[in-house]
Protein backbone atom coordinates (compact mmCIF):
# COMPACT_ATOMS: atom_id res chain seq x y z
CA UNK A 1 0.00 0.00 0.00
CA UNK A 2 1.46 3.36 -1.04
CA UNK A 3 2.11 6.19 1.36
CA UNK A 4 -0.47 8.32 -0.47
CA UNK A 5 -3.22 6.08 0.86
CA UNK A 6 -2.29 6.91 4.43
CA UNK A 7 -4.63 9.46 5.97
CA UNK A 8 -3.25 9.29 9.49
CA UNK A 9 0.38 8.51 10.11
CA UNK A 10 1.73 8.92 13.63
CA UNK A 11 5.37 8.20 14.23
CA UNK A 12 7.04 7.71 17.55
CA UNK A 13 4.64 9.95 19.45
CA UNK A 14 5.27 10.62 23.13
CA UNK A 15 3.26 12.68 25.52
CA UNK A 16 3.36 13.30 29.25
CA UNK A 17 0.77 15.02 31.44
CA UNK A 18 1.90 18.25 33.10
CA UNK A 19 2.41 16.29 36.33
CA UNK A 20 5.04 14.20 34.56
CA UNK A 21 3.01 11.03 34.10
CA UNK A 22 3.72 9.40 30.72
CA UNK A 23 0.59 8.66 28.68
CA UNK A 24 1.97 7.91 25.26
CA UNK A 25 5.50 6.68 24.78
CA UNK A 26 6.87 6.04 21.31
CA UNK A 27 3.46 5.37 19.81
CA UNK A 28 3.17 4.71 16.08
CA UNK A 29 -0.08 4.29 14.22
CA UNK A 30 -1.13 4.29 10.57
CA UNK A 31 -4.61 4.49 9.16
CA UNK A 32 -5.37 3.96 5.46
CA UNK A 33 -7.94 5.79 3.43
CA UNK A 34 -11.28 4.01 3.72
CA UNK A 35 -10.23 2.00 6.77
CA UNK A 36 -12.72 1.55 9.58
CA UNK A 37 -10.84 1.14 12.82
CA UNK A 38 -11.84 0.78 16.44
CA UNK A 39 -9.64 1.63 19.38
CA UNK A 40 -10.03 -0.01 22.77
CA UNK A 41 -8.10 0.69 25.91
CA UNK A 42 -8.51 1.10 29.65
CA UNK A 43 -9.53 4.42 31.20
CA UNK A 44 -6.66 6.86 31.32
CA UNK A 45 -4.66 4.99 28.69
CA UNK A 46 -4.48 8.09 26.48
CA UNK A 47 -7.18 7.38 23.90
CA UNK A 48 -8.73 10.85 24.09
CA UNK A 49 -5.28 12.42 24.25
CA UNK A 50 -4.43 10.60 21.04
CA UNK A 51 -7.56 11.84 19.28
CA UNK A 52 -6.92 15.40 20.42
CA UNK A 53 -3.40 15.11 19.13
CA UNK A 54 -4.65 14.03 15.70
CA UNK A 55 -6.89 17.11 15.72
CA UNK A 56 -3.98 19.34 16.72
CA UNK A 57 -5.54 20.34 20.03
CA UNK A 58 -2.51 19.22 21.99
CA UNK A 59 0.99 18.99 20.60
CA UNK A 60 3.02 15.81 21.23
CA UNK A 61 6.17 16.21 23.30
CA UNK A 62 7.97 14.11 20.71
CA UNK A 63 7.29 12.49 17.36
CA UNK A 64 5.74 13.37 14.02
CA UNK A 65 2.11 13.64 12.93
CA UNK A 66 1.41 13.29 9.21
CA UNK A 67 -2.11 13.72 7.90
CA UNK A 68 -2.98 13.07 4.25
CA UNK A 69 0.73 12.73 3.59
CA UNK A 70 1.62 16.15 5.00
CA UNK A 71 3.69 16.70 8.07
CA UNK A 72 1.79 18.79 10.65
CA UNK A 73 3.95 21.42 12.22
CA UNK A 74 1.84 24.41 13.15
CA UNK A 75 -1.67 25.40 14.10
CA UNK A 76 -2.07 26.60 10.53
CA UNK A 77 -1.43 23.08 9.18
CA UNK A 78 -4.06 21.69 11.54
CA UNK A 79 -6.53 24.40 10.62
CA UNK A 80 -6.38 22.99 7.10
CA UNK A 81 -6.51 19.32 8.13
CA UNK A 82 -9.57 19.88 10.34
CA UNK A 83 -11.58 20.51 7.19
CA UNK A 84 -11.02 16.85 6.36
CA UNK A 85 -11.02 15.23 9.77
CA UNK A 86 -14.08 15.61 11.96
CA UNK A 87 -14.07 14.76 15.66
CA UNK A 88 -17.26 13.97 17.54
CA UNK A 89 -16.61 14.71 21.20
CA UNK A 90 -17.58 12.33 23.95
CA UNK A 91 -19.95 14.82 25.57
CA UNK A 92 -22.37 16.47 23.12
CA UNK A 93 -22.81 19.38 25.55
CA UNK A 94 -19.23 20.31 24.73
CA UNK A 95 -19.98 20.26 21.05
CA UNK A 96 -23.35 21.99 20.84
CA UNK A 97 -22.88 25.57 21.91
CA UNK A 98 -25.40 27.42 19.76
CA UNK A 99 -28.88 28.21 21.01
CA UNK A 100 -30.60 26.30 18.21
CA UNK A 101 -29.82 23.07 16.37
CA UNK A 102 -29.77 24.67 12.92
CA UNK A 103 -27.19 27.24 13.94
CA UNK A 104 -24.98 24.61 15.46
CA UNK A 105 -25.04 22.41 12.38
CA UNK A 106 -24.40 25.46 10.17
CA UNK A 107 -21.44 26.60 12.28
CA UNK A 108 -18.87 24.33 10.59
CA UNK A 109 -19.94 25.11 6.99
CA UNK A 110 -19.89 28.86 7.82
CA UNK A 111 -16.32 28.48 9.09
CA UNK A 112 -15.42 26.73 5.85
CA UNK A 113 -16.55 29.80 3.95
CA UNK A 114 -20.13 28.94 3.00
CA UNK A 115 -22.56 31.84 2.72
CA UNK A 116 -25.39 31.94 5.30
CA UNK A 117 -27.85 30.59 2.69
CA UNK A 118 -25.53 27.75 1.65
CA UNK A 119 -24.77 26.91 5.28
CA UNK A 120 -28.47 26.81 6.05
CA UNK A 121 -29.11 24.48 3.09
CA UNK A 122 -26.25 22.18 4.08
CA UNK A 123 -27.50 22.08 7.67
CA UNK A 124 -31.06 21.29 6.63
CA UNK A 125 -29.86 18.55 4.29
CA UNK A 126 -27.53 17.01 6.88
CA UNK A 127 -30.33 16.91 9.43
CA UNK A 128 -32.59 15.31 6.84
CA UNK A 129 -29.97 12.65 6.05
CA UNK A 130 -29.83 11.75 9.74
CA UNK A 131 -33.64 11.70 9.97
CA UNK A 132 -33.58 14.78 12.18
CA UNK A 133 -35.88 16.90 10.05
CA UNK A 134 -37.95 19.16 12.30
CA UNK A 135 -35.08 19.66 14.74
CA UNK A 136 -33.86 22.89 13.10
CA UNK A 137 -35.36 25.31 15.57
CA UNK A 138 -35.13 23.08 18.62
CA UNK A 139 -33.17 24.58 21.51
CA UNK A 140 -29.99 22.53 21.92
CA UNK A 141 -30.05 22.32 25.71
CA UNK A 142 -33.61 20.98 25.70
CA UNK A 143 -32.72 17.92 23.58
CA UNK A 144 -32.51 14.48 25.17
CA UNK A 145 -29.11 12.81 25.54
CA UNK A 146 -29.62 10.65 22.45
CA UNK A 147 -30.86 13.57 20.35
CA UNK A 148 -27.89 15.66 21.43
CA UNK A 149 -25.54 12.92 20.32
CA UNK A 150 -27.18 12.63 16.89
CA UNK A 151 -27.13 16.41 16.44
CA UNK A 152 -23.46 16.49 17.50
CA UNK A 153 -22.78 13.92 14.79
CA UNK A 154 -24.70 16.09 12.32
CA UNK A 155 -22.58 19.16 13.19
CA UNK A 156 -19.48 17.24 12.14
CA UNK A 157 -20.98 15.49 9.10
CA UNK A 158 -22.21 18.88 7.79
CA UNK A 159 -18.56 19.68 7.08
CA UNK A 160 -18.30 16.52 4.98
CA UNK A 161 -14.94 15.37 6.34
CA UNK A 162 -13.10 12.48 4.67
CA UNK A 163 -12.23 11.05 8.08
CA UNK A 164 -14.64 10.74 11.00
CA UNK A 165 -13.15 10.36 14.45
CA UNK A 166 -15.45 9.56 17.37
CA UNK A 167 -14.69 9.56 21.07
CA UNK A 168 -16.89 7.07 22.94
CA UNK A 169 -19.93 7.61 20.73
CA UNK A 170 -22.24 5.32 22.68
CA UNK A 171 -21.66 6.39 26.27
CA UNK A 172 -25.00 6.64 28.04
CA UNK A 173 -27.12 5.97 24.98
CA UNK A 174 -30.08 3.62 24.81
CA UNK A 175 -30.32 0.67 22.44
CA UNK A 176 -32.40 2.54 19.88
CA UNK A 177 -30.07 5.52 19.54
CA UNK A 178 -27.18 3.09 19.50
CA UNK A 179 -28.76 1.28 16.54
CA UNK A 180 -29.40 4.57 14.76
CA UNK A 181 -25.76 5.59 15.08
CA UNK A 182 -24.64 2.17 13.82
CA UNK A 183 -26.86 2.44 10.74
CA UNK A 184 -25.72 6.02 10.05
CA UNK A 185 -22.06 5.03 10.31
CA UNK A 186 -22.60 2.04 8.04
CA UNK A 187 -24.00 4.20 5.24
CA UNK A 188 -21.05 6.60 5.36
CA UNK A 189 -18.27 6.32 2.86
CA UNK A 190 -15.61 7.69 5.15
CA UNK A 191 -12.50 6.63 6.94
CA UNK A 192 -13.51 5.87 10.54
CA UNK A 193 -11.61 5.88 13.80
CA UNK A 194 -13.79 5.08 16.78
CA UNK A 195 -12.77 4.95 20.40
CA UNK A 196 -15.17 2.83 22.41
CA UNK A 197 -15.48 0.44 25.29
CA UNK A 198 -18.36 -1.36 23.66
CA UNK A 199 -17.14 -4.39 21.79
CA UNK A 200 -20.51 -5.02 20.19
CA UNK A 201 -20.65 -1.48 18.83
CA UNK A 202 -17.17 -1.74 17.34
CA UNK A 203 -17.97 -5.14 15.85
CA UNK A 204 -20.95 -3.62 14.05
CA UNK A 205 -19.22 -0.48 12.77
CA UNK A 206 -15.55 -1.23 12.18
CA UNK A 207 -13.38 -3.74 10.32
CA UNK A 208 -10.27 -3.79 12.47
CA UNK A 209 -9.54 -2.86 16.00
CA UNK A 210 -6.52 -1.71 17.92
CA UNK A 211 -5.63 -1.75 21.56
CA UNK A 212 -3.69 0.83 23.51
CA UNK A 213 -1.54 -0.22 26.42
CA UNK A 214 1.53 1.18 28.16
CA UNK A 215 1.49 4.20 25.85
CA UNK A 216 1.62 2.11 22.66
CA UNK A 217 -0.92 1.08 20.06
CA UNK A 218 -1.08 -2.50 18.83
CA UNK A 219 -3.18 -4.21 16.19
CA UNK A 220 -5.65 -6.47 17.97
CA UNK A 221 -7.50 -8.21 15.17
CA UNK A 222 -10.61 -8.09 13.09
CA UNK A 223 -13.59 -6.42 14.71
CA UNK A 224 -15.87 -9.30 13.76
CA UNK A 225 -14.19 -11.34 16.49
CA UNK A 226 -15.24 -8.81 19.11
CA UNK A 227 -18.10 -9.59 21.44
CA UNK A 228 -19.17 -9.03 24.98
CA UNK A 229 -18.96 -11.92 27.38
CA UNK A 230 -21.83 -12.49 29.69
CA UNK A 231 -20.55 -15.90 30.75
CA UNK A 232 -17.57 -16.95 32.80
CA UNK A 233 -14.58 -17.00 30.54
CA UNK A 234 -10.89 -17.00 31.10
CA UNK A 235 -10.34 -14.17 28.65
CA UNK A 236 -13.64 -12.38 29.25
CA UNK A 237 -11.97 -9.24 30.51
CA UNK A 238 -9.67 -8.52 27.60
CA UNK A 239 -10.19 -8.44 23.84
CA UNK A 240 -9.19 -11.81 22.40
CA UNK A 241 -9.66 -14.11 19.44
CA UNK A 242 -11.45 -17.41 19.31
CA UNK A 243 -9.46 -19.88 17.29
Amino acid sequence: MGADRLVIDLENISFAYPDGRDVLSGLSFKLDKGARAGLIGPNGSGKTTLLHMIMGLIPPSEGAIRLFGREMRSEKDFHESRKNIGLVFQNPDDQLFSPTVLEDVAFGPLNLGASPEEARDIAVKTLKDLHLTGFEDRISYRLSGGEKKLVALATVLAMNPAVLVMDEPTTGLDEKTNDRIVSILNTLDKTLLIVSHEYNFLARTTDDFYGIRDGQIFYAGESATLHTHYHAHAAGEVPHKHI
Binding site: L57, R82, K83, D94, Q95, A106, N111, L112, M159
Partner: peptide, 18 residues
Protein backbone atom coordinates in the same frame (compact mmCIF):
# COMPACT_ATOMS: atom_id res chain seq x y z
CA UNK B 1 -13.59 21.57 25.83
CA UNK B 2 -16.21 23.72 24.11
CA UNK B 3 -13.45 25.84 22.62
CA UNK B 4 -11.62 22.72 21.43
CA UNK B 5 -14.81 21.43 19.82
CA UNK B 6 -15.25 24.77 18.07
CA UNK B 7 -11.66 24.76 16.86
CA UNK B 8 -12.19 21.26 15.47
CA UNK B 9 -14.98 22.61 13.35
CA UNK B 10 -12.78 25.27 11.83
CA UNK B 11 -13.42 28.13 14.27
CA UNK B 12 -10.73 30.79 14.02
CA UNK B 13 -12.12 33.64 16.06
CA UNK B 14 -14.75 34.93 13.67
CA UNK B 15 -18.44 34.42 14.30
CA UNK B 16 -20.99 34.31 11.52
CA UNK B 17 -24.65 35.06 11.95
CA UNK B 18 -27.34 33.03 10.20
Amino acid sequence: RVHQAMVCRGFSGKFYCL
